[in-house]
Amino acid sequence: MAAETPAHYHTNTPWNEPGAEPYIRVENVTKKFGDFVAVNDVSLNVYRGELFSLLGGSGCGKTTLLRMLAGFEEPTSGKIYIDGVDMAGIPPYARPTNMMFQSYALFPHMTVEANVSFGLKQDKVPSAEINNRVRQILDMVQLTQFAKRKPHQLSGGQRQRVALARALVKAPKLLLLDEPLGALDKKLREATQFEIMNIQDKLGITFMVVTHDQEEAMTLSTRIGVMNQGQIVQIGTPQEIYEYPNTKQVADFIGSVNLFEGRIVEDESDHVLIDSPEAGGRIYVDHGISSAPGAKVWAALRPEKIQLVKGDRGEPYNCIKGTVKGIAYMGNLSVYLIALDSGKEVKVTMPNQVRAAEQMIGWDDRVTLTWHANSPVILLS
């Protein structure tokens, strides 16, 4: 399979269309295990053909929510609708869903072909149709030549594709994937992300992925729901989640971010001025936020949006000074750890556009950090 994004992938945005009907509706769903609240009053709409990711750390409730969609758990309260049908009391085998587990759960004594066809045989699908559907799906995931092998004769990436083929061959309307790439190494995981995107785009099936990996969610998803302590705290496209986080928790969880605490000095329609002792200066943002003067806020600034130059420069705003205390050369970019004169440490990333770029600024160099006025995001909590 070609490891490139389809040209039309992520171009449809049904969530922005007023008349669009959600394919999955989760309405005020709560799930308790004794006194522990795993999922807390979650509401969510997912549209047909989306590749939607639930993203969060361990214990945030994302897998429990996925299992309720699959029918392996029943909500304590609230409703789940799939394609307009209330799923209350409907067992997993009667739902228009299939689930791909993190462990892949392949039958070790069966060949690839037998693993993929197992569900169809259980459903008593005619043999000719089974053979045709298995052949088509193995071709799609590029496993035709491995059809007679058993799982122990395959690589991790190949086993992952067998599990995906087995889940897809039954043509579910909704495919649920629980940490589907967690067992793969970084390079294989990156390649497989694009394979999943291509397959989902070709088949048009709605995918819902549970993952703790921010990069994976950003790569795969039409939209992301960020979960924390049983609640969805923000829903948006990867760009919206990254560029416009709505809380400190989301900003800190998605990628890397520098947070500067401060208080508002001016808040006008065209700008905000923040006094931040942590930054060691004033932060100017080119839009207003309608908050009271003196209110405590945080300016979230991504490391790649900061410019780094040697020496001390002087600007009234968005200009802070420090000393280089660490450099990590990552190949395509370098990460700089800067100890500000205020005592706070910040990260700055810079692309290595020429060879040995990491040597242009060295350890213990005095540096000035600047950024554009539209780069910070102002957070109230």
Rank of each mutant, 00 (worst) to 15 (best):
M360Y: 03
Q353W: 10
V348L: 12
W371Q: 08
T368Q: 13
A356T: 02
R366D: 07
V367I: 08
T368E: 12
L369Q: 07
K347N: 08
T368K: 15
L369M: 13
S342R: 07
S375N: 08
E345Q: 06
R355K: 07
A356E: 12
K344S: 00
D364A: 05
L369C: 03
V346N: 04
H372A: 11
T349K: 14
T368L: 10
V348C: 02
G343Q: 07
A373I: 04
M360G: 02
V354Q: 08
K347P: 01
A356V: 09
R366A: 14
K347H: 11
H372V: 03
E358V: 08
R366K: 12
Q359C: 00
A357M: 10
K344G: 01
M360K: 06
I361S: 02
G362D: 02
W371V: 05
T370N: 14
T370R: 15
E358C: 04
D365F: 05
T368G: 12
P376E: 05
V354L: 03
K344D: 03
R355T: 06
Q353L: 09
T368W: 13
V354S: 03
R366V: 06
G343Y: 09
Q353D: 13
R355H: 02
P351F: 07
T370S: 15
H372W: 05
P351S: 12
R355M: 00
M360T: 07
A357L: 09
D341A: 12
D341C: 08
K344M: 09
N352T: 01
V346E: 04
E345V: 07
E345M: 12
A373R: 05
Q359D: 01
G362R: 01
W371I: 12
R355I: 02
I361E: 11
T349R: 09
D364R: 13
P376T: 06
D365S: 09
N374T: 14
V348T: 05
D341T: 14
S375G: 06
A373S: 15
V367D: 11
A356H: 15
E345I: 06
K347E: 08
D341M: 11
R355Y: 10
W363Q: 14
T349F: 12
P351D: 00
V348K: 02
A356N: 09
N374E: 15
M350N: 09
R355D: 05
W371P: 02
S342I: 03
W371N: 15
N352M: 13
L369F: 01
V346Q: 04
E358I: 02
Q359T: 02
Q359G: 00
R355A: 04
I361P: 00
Q359L: 04
A357R: 09
V354P: 00
N374Q: 14
R366M: 15
V377P: 01
T368P: 10
N374L: 06
P376V: 02
T368C: 14
K347W: 13
V367L: 09
G362Y: 00
N374R: 14
A373T: 09
V367C: 01
W363G: 08
T349W: 11
S375Q: 09
